[in-house]
């Protein structure tokens, strides 16, 4: 695990350590099972075509969970995620598998964020952030916000 982040060391405008993700058809199947979201839109090519999305799309909630990981990785074990939001503005399509374990070459997603506010409220050392996911073309498909409680000295 990375060194613990302290509230004193965070600056408004500062970058949150980015997190790379590769959505694959394998990952979508795992997510369907783990989350219980069995909508065929995410694994049935014919169904996805009829629904007008071309081929199966990445679950919004999986992208949400990538952004949760962006925050939990950054805030460290002594940090607490207090508030979180995101909206699924554009669709993403997973890479197909080349072998049972490895995906084809293709798109990589970047989870990113920026500190927008730093304050103390009810004794809690808080940091507000803008967070988002960029697709392989650098377009934001999933914007959001997060508030974390960090360890602070005062």
């Amino acid at each position: 695990m990375a060194k613990q982040l302290n509230w004193e060391n965070v600056e408004v405008g500062g970058e949150i350590t980015p997190l790379s993700k590769v959505a694959t058809t394998l990952m979508l199947v795992k997510w369907a099972g783990a989350s219980g979201d069995f909508n065929p839109l995410h694994y049935d090519a014919a169904f996805a075509a009829i629904q007008g999305v071309g081929s199966p799309i990445v679950h919004g909630a999986l992208k949400r969970q990538w952004l949760v990981q962006l925050m939990t990785d950054w805030m460290g074990e002594q940090g607490t995620l207090k508030k979180f939001s995101c909206s699924y503005r554009a669709m993403d399509w997973p890479r197909k598998m080349a072998t049972p374990m490895t995906p084809e070459e293709g798109e990589t997603w970047q989870c990113k964020g920026k500190v927008t506010k730093k304050y103390i409220e009810d004794g809690q050392h808080l940091v507000d952030c803008d967070i988002w996911i960029e697709n392989g073309k650098g377009e934001v498909t999933t914007p959001g916000t997060a508030t974390v409680i960090l360890p602070g000295r005062s």
């Binding site: 783990a34 989350s35 219980g36 069995f38 909630a61 939990t72 979180f84």
Partner: peptide
């Protein structure tokens, strides 16, 4: 993990 549960699945059926 935070978000272990959520819409559209309130609690993972799995």
């Amino acid at each position: 993990p935070p978000g272990f549960f959520g819409w559209p699945v309130k609690l993972p059926r799995g």
